[in-house]
């Protein structure tokens, strides 16, 4: 009897993503001493934590066949709102953070409700939400950036360390574990996949399509608000112009992670790999010194191309 390592076709894309990540990470580890050290690894996770949280929400949105262009703007708005709450309105941290999170949920819920009730394309509605959130963020502060450094109840969050994991890194790791569980083992997760596969079939099966759609965008708003808080912790400030076009990086991470933009197919684990791949590509020019940041953009574009063509070919094979 011969046992052969067989990869199921639906896992092929995920395996390809994992291979690319290992290749990139391995090459970087060989080339730059200290790259694979524990400290640098936690640092890699920490710097990409806001993008990572946003990408978690984006994965649910894309799995359901939608898109959310507002996450970058909500990150900026949330970071500014948190700074406002702490510095100008003197709210304690246990009150300020829930306020910001609720704000994110409300923003996402509003997008979801408009998309669902008025049958408008998610692309347009979340584009309007992006303008709105960015505009409010810019209007909230005259100087565009508010420092939170030296705040008595906020500093412990900044200084928090657990096995070299700071709070953003830890929250991202916990977030991705919870998200994998939600996507795979809960009714909500299965509904998301069902709606993305075929909204019509989901409706006929009696699934709560409307409620789930609104919840998906609310969740994406919550994740983005969380990302904004992580950004504020990482930089000790709120910044209205941060995370410009971050939604594109989030979408790229999700797509590189093997989730199809048409919805219904994909995995949260892939998104984690996608975020880490983007993180490695972004940090390489820093190590390289003379390599410029535009190579990052070209590399991300090239990777997107390779993965999308690969997915396309896999899809064709299956049909």
């Amino acid at each position: 009897m011969r046992t052969r390592l067989r990869i199921k076709p639906q896992h092929l894309s995920l395996v390809a993503t994992a291979a690319v990540f290992l290749l990139l990470y391995g090459a970087a580890a060989l080339r730059y001493p200290g790259f694979a050290s524990w400290f640098q690894t936690t640092e890699l996770i920490a710097t990409n934590a806001p993008l990572g949280l946003a990408a978690i929400g984006m994965t649910f949105v894309i799995l359901s066949g939608g898109i959310d262009l507002s996450v970058g703007a909500i990150i900026a708005l949330s970071s500014i709102l948190l700074a406002k709450c702490l510095v100008e309105w003197n709210l304690p941290v246990p009150l300020a953070i829930p306020t910001v999170l609720v704000g994110g949920i409300l923003f996402g819920t509003a997008s979801g409700v408009v998309i669902r009730w008025f049958r408008l394309p998610p692309f347009l509605v979340t584009l309007a939400a992006m303008f709105l959130a960015r505009g409010i963020a810019l209007v909230l502060t005259e100087e565009k950036r508010l420092s939170i450094a030296g705040h008595a109840t906020f500093d412990p969050l900044v200084d928090f360390l657990l096995f070299d994991f700071n709070l953003p890194a830890l929250i991202f790791v916990v977030g991705i574990v919870v998200a994998i569980g939600v996507a795979r083992y809960t009714r909500f997760g299965r509904n998301v996949y069902a709606i993305g596969g075929s909204e019509q079939s989901a409706l006929l099966m009696g699934l709560p399509v409307g409620r789930t759609t609104v919840m998906i965008y609310a969740l994406s708003g919550l994740c983005a608000a969380g990302g904004g808080i992580l950004y504020a912790i990482g930089s000790q400030s709120g910044d209205a112009s941060v995370a410009q076009l971050l939604e594109l990086d989030a979408i790229a991470a999700v797509v590189i992670g093997g989730t199809l933009l048409s919805g219904g197919v994909g995995s949260m684990g892939g998104t984690l790999l996608g975020v880490l791949i983007l993180g490695v590509i972004t940090v390489v020019p820093v190590y390289e010194g003379d390599l410029n940041s535009w190579w990052t953009k070209i590399a991300i574009g090239g990777l997107l191309l390779v993965f999308i063509v690969l997915q396309r070919l896999l899809q064709r094979q299956r049909h």
Partner: peptide
């Protein structure tokens, strides 16, 4: 030809194109 969704297909050039523009002018 490849039947890629327009949002993704043009996203590639949206990201890489600006990179190429910056490469040409050295930023």
């Amino acid at each position: 030809m490849l039947g890629i969704q327009p949002i993704v297909a043009t996203l590639i050039l949206m990201v890489a194109g600006r990179g190429i523009a910056q490469l040409l002018t050295d930023g």
